[in-house]
């Protein structure tokens, strides 16, 4: 698996080779630094710990600072990527070049918070009729059975907080990789606000 940490910059549009317009998300990817490694023998699984976007040393608590290998400045975003494919050792940097021949990627991030939302927006319920005397508009309807079980089953879809959770956009086409400028263009939208961290990996389903 390939993994990278990036920052969502915003969306734009690009003309494809056939002259058609394509919506793209611009992701900034500075070279990621390998901060640590997890091995099968020691940790029971293999992974690579990547860090990106420098943090001021004075902002980091000393015990946290000690986690970084020597000569590596502390990072704002540190993430483990399991079964990392490109060979790398601690202290090395992983750049966008690893995506050079990748056609599709998955991009994960924290989705925009939507606040307390009803059941139609949150769970795609159909809702009821708007007119003709209907008194059932955007409600959720029945939440369960009667005498048995006499309670609402856990996990029943209801209104509540929506968004602000991790979500992944799968199989996004890679439109352009510019390792020099640290810029990645993928087709379509990516979860999260501008300037939020996103995690790029090669597409699971392609």
């Amino acid at each position: 698996m390939i993994g990278l940490i990036g920052k969502k910059v915003g969306m734009s549009q690009v003309f494809g080779e056939d002259g058609r317009l394509m919506p793209v998300t611009v992701i900034e990817v500075e070279p990621n630094i390998v901060v640590g490694k997890r091995t099968q023998e020691k940790d029971g699984y293999s992974a690579v710990v990547l860090g990106a976007f420098d943090q001021k040393e004075s902002r980091v608590a000393k015990p946290v600072l000690g986690q970084y290998p020597e000569g590596v400045s502390p990072k704002r975003c540190v993430r483990e990527f399991r079964d990392f494919a490109p060979d790398c050792s601690v202290g090395e940097s992983v750049s966008l070049a690893v995506l050079e021949n990748v056609g599709f990627v998955d991009v994960a991030g924290t989705s925009k918070g939507k606040g307390f939302q009803g059941v139609m927006k949150r769970h795609n319920f159909g809702g009821g009729r708007a007119t003709h005397g209907s008194k059932f508009h955007r409600e959720n309807g029945s939440t369960g059975m009667a005498a048995w079980p006499s309670r609402v089953i856990k996990g029943t879809k209801m209104a509540g907080r929506m968004g602000g959770e991790r979500s992944t956009s799968q199989s996004l086409r890679v439109v352009r990789v510019d390792a020099e400028k640290g810029m990645l263009l993928v087709k379509g939208a990516v979860p999260g606000t501008r300037n939020s961290y996103v995690f790029i990996s090669n597409a699971k389903k392609k």
Partner: peptide, 12 residues
């Protein structure tokens, strides 16, 4: 939004 501008500027 610098990178976005860059992407757009080269297409104008």
């Amino acid at each position: 939004m610098d990178l976005v501008r860059m992407v757009e500027a080269e297409q104008e």
